[in-house]
């Protein structure tokens, strides 16, 4: 499906999402001065600690009162707020592009909205679409003005053959990037199984936000228009086929499996302190996205 930048880059949508804020507990240091808390000490407004003066320190930071009492020279150090690197792992597998209302559209809109939030608060964003492998298309993009560029890259996202979210996460972990926020936008349908994905995700040194793109018939297959007669279920990525007689027993078993899948994903997210947003592809993105930011901001 050819994505259209005009439909993706919705000013009204972006203006509304930019009012939201995205925070993590502590971003990795080494970035530019910005608004996210980091472990770095330096310039800032909030006092952090004292340290003995060494040559080169700013003379304006010397605490003369301590010097008068102790006769030794100490300088005040402050918490330095820097930017937060946000890494978007965008699922570009075939399953995201399949179906009459493909999941990729709401997925990209969610990615763009989150990116807009990050850029608006002076964070840096990176876009890493993945299929079988991770592909870094945008790295460390800063500034509001670059949102259009980010959107243009998103619109050029193309379908890849298969999904290997595990590989993508492992690859990301091996890049040794500055600690930040990893946003995984995917349907999480990995042929290796969800458990491997969750195990790989647990090793990520970043905060994680999961955006799960769903369709109504994921939970209720009977909503599929083809749901009658003898069915041959075919995987759109691997081509694997399963003969299914749509009986209540099979339907019940499917729903149990899918419910277990969601529960596993939720438990993993809770264990890791990650956020989880289930985004229904058949519904507007903005209300669902705004629901994630309960008080206007999301703190991970």
């Amino acid at each position: 499906m050819a994505l259209n930048l005009n439909t993706l880059f919705d000013y009204e949508y972006l203006a509304q999402v930019q009012q939201l804020s995205l925070r993590i507990a502590q971003a990795g240091k080494g970035g530019r001065l910005a608004e996210q808390k980091t472990s770095a000490r330096g310039q800032g407004l909030e006092f952090a600690d004292f340290k003995p003066y060494v040559a080169g320190d700013d003379l304006r930071a010397i605490d003369w009162n301590i010097y008068r009492r102790l006769g030794r020279v100490f300088v005040r150090v402050f918490e330095e707020k820097q930017d937060m690197p946000v890494y978007f792992l965008q699922d570009a597998s075939a399953s995201m592009f399949y179906e009459t209302t493909p999941r990729i559209v709401p997925a990209l809109r969610a990615t763009l909205g989150l990116a807009a939030i990050a850029l608006a608060q002076h964070d840096s964003v990176s876009l890493m679409p993945f299929g079988r492998n991770l592909d870094i298309q945008v790295k460390g993009l800063n500034g509001k003005n670059n949102l259009l560029q980010f959107a243009r890259v998103l619109a050029e996202c193309e379908s890849q053959a298969a999904t290997s979210l595990t590989t993508a996460i492992k690859t990301l972990a091996n890049l040794n990037l500055r600690k930040g926020l990893v946003v995984i936008v995917s349907d999480f349908f990995d042929n290796d199984g969800l458990q491997k994905v969750l195990a790989a995700m647990a090793n990520l040194p970043h905060k994680v936000l999961l955006v799960q793109i769903t369709q109504p018939w994921d939970a209720q297959p009977e909503l599929m228009p083809e749901w009658q007669g003898e069915l041959q279920i075919q995987d759109c990525e691997t081509g694997a086929e399963v003969a299914v007689s749509p009986t209540p027993d099979v339907l019940k078993a499917y729903k149990q499996v899918y419910q277990q899948f969601n529960q596993d994903l939720l438990k993993a997210a809770q264990a890791q302190g990650a956020g989880l947003l289930q985004l229904d592809a058949s519904q507007p993105v903005l209300p669902q996205l705004a629901g994630l930011f309960a008080q206007g901001g999301l703190n991970l």
């Binding site: 349907d187 369709q215 007669g229 759109c236 691997t238 086929e241």
Partner: peptide, 14 residues
């Protein structure tokens, strides 16, 4: 039986 091929995002659950 005449079967109907239905492509889905994933057949893993099935």
């Amino acid at each position: 039986p005449r079967v109907k091929v239905v492509q889905v995002a994933t057949a893993l659950f099935w």
